[in-house]
Design a protein around this nucleic acid. Structure first.
Length: 486
DNA sequence: TTAGGGTTAG
């Protein structure tokens, strides 16, 4: 983790390809105040390295505040390696230093285990630095449920639980683990609640299926900011209640709260869910009329998805073509959009273009590609794409991909091949898959196979009303409505 | 006299 910090020197800026000169040149005399100001203002690693070099030359690197600022700046510029290295070189780091390095690691999921181990090191250190509420709230951010529970105990024992940051962080640990009851208990016992804390509780409910409970907390919030609104709107979207999501969005605008990108993502998803094309268009023009010159990939993709789901493929394509730096999710939205509306040729062409540009597909890409093959009856291509998932792209087919294949083979009348595919799957087929196969049996008059599957489904108690309808259709067609009733 | 919470697409 801790790499060797390149000891910066002023001459390091005069290497083979020198970076552009920093905005401020460090002069021969450097006071601690001036250095602190320079560190706070810097925005580039190059400049920070130069300041670091100057601190070393002036012997100011021992100053704990400057050392602290330097370490924090390395981290905030995304150079956790430099930050860690500096920390490792610091003798007897104080609680500020420990907290700062723990916090820097807690900011990115990939470094969470390290944040926790730093906290453990801090406690076991010979110089035993005592954590405070700042340390605790930082380390809690990186915690999964088990160490989180222990730290909750720790916070109670040390009396930090009354701190609103610590309380919120503990609440968040339980929320992330889906333990709504424990989160609510922490919430109820908090002596004071900030907007952030209220939002954390709303998020906890919204993410764990309790959108009405979320709403109850939301209604009790006095001054709501955009995050609070976003959480509530997205909560409705995630629970498949787009009408209420859009209602909340209207109320948010009426309350003069300025929407952010996150708001647009949720609202566009709500429009997509109910096929509200006009509302989607309105959001699109709102985005364009409110200072958003260049669509972000996220918002662009949400627009593509909304237009596709609302059936306006031309609008979707127009937005898609305008997205700068398209990632695979953007490509997927357009490919799947085309495929779902039967524009197989466009979907396949787009896939070919995406590959040509070196974008690596995901399992969603193959949902699109295989559906396109299915709609167009391209059996050979479909088989080949399905095979390539594993062989070429190392993507394990999911049940949905088998569904596409069964649909493709079934429509083409290749029932035996489809049945074999289902029987040899590594996972259990679900009712949707059996339903697809049954529908194909009916379409091609393969009553015997239909009966076989039907019998098996009924015997294993798996048949539901949908499959029963299909079954009765099959039996009606065979003129033998009773056979399957054993 | 230097630090810490909540929301993000297919």
């Amino acid at each position: 983790m801790s790499s060797i910090l390149p000891i910066p020197t002023i001459s390091s800026s005069a290497t083979a390809s020198p970076p552009p000169p920093p905005p401020t040149t460090i002069t021969t005399t450097l006071t601690a105040d001036r250095a602190a100001h320079l560190i706070d203002k810097t925005g580039t690693l190059h400049h920070l390295l130069e300041i670091h070099a100057a601190l070393l030359r002036h012997g100011l690197h021992q100053n704990p505040i400057l050392n602290f600022k330097l370490q924090r700046s390395y981290a905030s510029l995304g150079h956790l390696d430099h930050s860690t290295s500096l920390f490792r070189r610091t003798h007897n780091p104080n609680v500020f230093f420990w907290t700062s390095i723990i916090h820097a690691h807690a900011l990115h999921a990939a470094h969470h285990p390290h944040a926790l181990s730093l906290y453990a090191q801090m406690l076991s250190n010979a110089d035993a630095v005592r954590p405070n509420a700042f340390t605790l709230s930082s380390v809690l951010k990186s915690c999964p449920i088990e160490p989180g529970r222990a730290l909750h105990g720790h916070a109670l024992k040390m009396g930090f639980i009354c701190d609103v940051y610590v309380g919120t962080a503990v609440l968040d640990v339980y929320a992330r683990a889906g333990d709504v009851v424990a989160a609510r208990k922490v919430f109820d016992e908090m002596p004071e609640r900030s907007l952030v804390c209220l939002t954390a509780m709303i998020t906890c409910y919204a993410k764990n299926g309790g959108v009405d409970e979320a709403r109850a907390v939301f209604d009790g919030v006095g001054e709501r900011d955009v995050v609070c609104w976003n959480v509530m709107i997205d909560g409705y979207v995630q629970r498949g209640r787009p009408g209420e999501a859009l209602g909340m969005f209207r109320r948010m605008l009426a309350a003069k709260v300025r929407p952010t990108e996150v708001t647009f993502l949720a609202v566009l998803s709500a429009c997509a869910q109910i096929g509200a094309l006009e509302c989607g268009r309105w959001v699109h023009s709102y985005i364009e009329n409110n200072g958003v010159r260049l669509l972000s990939v996220h918002v662009g993709t949400a627009l593509v998805d909304m237009y596709c789901k609302c059936g306006s493929l031309e609008d979707a394509r127009m937005v898609f073509d305008g997205i700068k730096g398209k990632d695979v999710v953007a490509w997927n939205s357009m490919i799947v959009g085309y495929a779902m509306h039967g524009f197989s040729k466009d979907a396949m062409e787009l896939f070919a273009r995406m590959r040509k540009l070196g974008v690596w597909p995901t399992n969603i890409t193959f949902i699109g590609v295989l559906s396109a093959c299915s709609h167009a009856g391209l059996v050979t291509e479909g088989r080949s794409f399905f095979k390539s998932m594993k062989d070429e792209y190392q993507i394990e087919p999911k049940i949905e991909h088998y569904g596409c294949m069964v649909d493709l083979l079934g429509r083409a009348g290749l029932l035996d091949e489809a049945y074999e595919l289902v029987k040899n799957m590594e996972m259990d087929p679900d009712l949707v898959l059996w339903g697809t196969l049954l529908a194909a049996c009916r379409l091609h008059g393969r009553y015997e196979m239909g009966e076989q599957i039907a019998e098996w489904l009924v015997c294993s108690g798996l048949a539901n009303s949908g499959t029963c309808t299909l079954l009765s259709n099959i039996y009606a067609a065979t003129g033998n409505g009773m056979v399957w009733r054993k």
